[in-house]
Amino acid sequence: MNYSYYPGCTLKTKAQDLDFYGRESAAALGITLEELPEWQCCGAVYPIARDEIATKLSAIRALMAARDNGTPLVTLCSACHHVLTRVNGDMQRNADIRMKANNYLKPAVPYAGETRVIHYLQLLRDEIGFDNLKQAVKKPLKGRKIGAYYGCLLLRPSKEMQFDDPENPHIIEDFIKALGAEPVVYAMRNECCGGYVTLKSEAQAKENVDLIIKNARAHGAEELITACPLCMYNLRAHQDGSMPVRYITELLYEALGLREGGAADET
């Protein structure tokens, strides 16, 4: 199975783990992630104001490239997934944005949101299947109590993201189960980590992180996983280090037995 892959800037720099483990695991599962040849930064935040067109163009370029490639577009970073999905939705549903963007980009074939954007987790669930994933697990993560941290960007606004039940999601829990570990369900897993406001006010971000980690711990979580580099940063930076936080792909890599299976580990 072939997919276009959009890593995004953070996965090329601070979140190389997320990217590396993701690619290696996908390859081990027989999935080819073909990185788009000339991708640009998606913009990191979805431009809410309807009259913002220019800030959506780089996302549209990536979406178009995947369309021309004839494959769905796989993302890993929550923020990229959020931006690409919503901009794609705009191109499908908002005639004004579609017209202006096409007028500016002048593609050979106008773009109207034809690309299917899927998150890596959806790839595992819908294309591979968690049951099959379970079969592929060589080193089940037995006995580990893992809390899924979803954050905001994958889930909301649910009408546009269509990712999971926005208030009681379970895709990462199902993923954790498939890897042989025990998912810990806690209510704050879909509350905000503080996002980029951490640049303005560390205290504000810390307040959010405190609530999340306290709640996860109260339910017995011994570690957390996330798909978002910014969530990862906040969750790590604003605690004392007693709650380990990992990327979803690292957990997958481990469960697939790739760490000791001879695959080159990241240096």
Partner: peptide, 27 residues
């Protein structure tokens, strides 16, 4: 918030992800 402030932030904390910085520029 102006872009000139950003280098100091990067120096202060090397772990800050690009995503946050880009967001800062954008917002």
């Amino acid at each position: 918030f102006v872009p000139d402030e950003v280098p100091a932030l990067i120096i202060a904390d090397k772990e800050i992800p690009q995503q946050a910085l880009v967001s800062a520029f954008r917002r």
